[in-house]
Amino acid sequence: MQGYNFAYLDETTKRMIRRAILKAVAIPGHQVPFASREMPLPYGWGTGGIQLTASLIGADDVLKVIDQGADDTTNAISIRSFFARTAGVRTTTHTDAATLIQTRHRIPEIPLRDDQIIVYQVPMPEPLYRLEPSRAVSRRMHAMADYGPMHVKLYEDITRFGRVAVSYDHPVVVNRRYLMSPSPIPAFDNPKLHRMPALQLFGAGREKRIYAVPPHTDVVSLDFEDRPFNPIRAPHRCALCGAEHSYLDEMVIDDRGGRMFACSDTDYCASYQAREA
């Protein structure tokens, strides 16, 4: 695009971000501060993920962007077209054809490979922020591995509601050390974080943090031995493809309470339909 560098960001900024990525990979789950730039998309709309993607993407990459699991949600379209415009790279909706996947709120259903990178958009990188609003204090808590309060919260949930009342952004412990927000993915997706062959990068633009889960790293969802982590999905089949184990969107189809359930991962749904046909 005229007047702008390849993939929008200037090369100095990209190098700065890559250094933060390297540090993040070296300390799995630890939030690395970085000098987040203003992007032409608003904060909270994926600026962290976009900066990661911009600093990683090369001319040969094939980019997939999803939001809520779907390639054709408005913000996914907007980000994909941003890179098509500023980097001229190929884009795809097929998970297995992508080298780089930027996502908001979901992990694709099919397992990712070690030649892929997944970039998560993160609104609130600090998993402790509801318990401790001061980042100066929460950083100390990470340094001291003072994670008891997080378990106390789970204890309270079970005591009050009979189960853990966190259904998305369920905190995880990475590599037996750092407590980490997996970004607001449904708890259903948490198990996919564990020992994933692909490199997982998390970018929070407004909060100016980058963190990472290197390939094949242990990622454990917080729970109790006798109340194991137990994510739930809508107990239905996908109305479009018939898949039984995918994460489903619920759609209201009439004003008499009629509901339809369909895969949130649109690429998975389409290929499942093709396979079954």
């Binding site: 909270g44 709309w45 939001d67 809520q68 699991g69 949600t73 408005t74 913000n75 908001r104 709120h105 979901r106 189960r163 009342a165 259904s167 998305y168 952004d169 607001p184 993915i185 449904p186 708890a187 259903f188 994510p231 739930i232 999905r233 809508a234 994460y247 489903l248 969107d249 619920e250 949130s264």
Partner: peptide, 13 residues
Amino acid sequence: LPHHVDFQSELET
């Protein structure tokens, strides 16, 4: 922005 994936998991919970 759409948050229906998270809201869906809240609904199920």
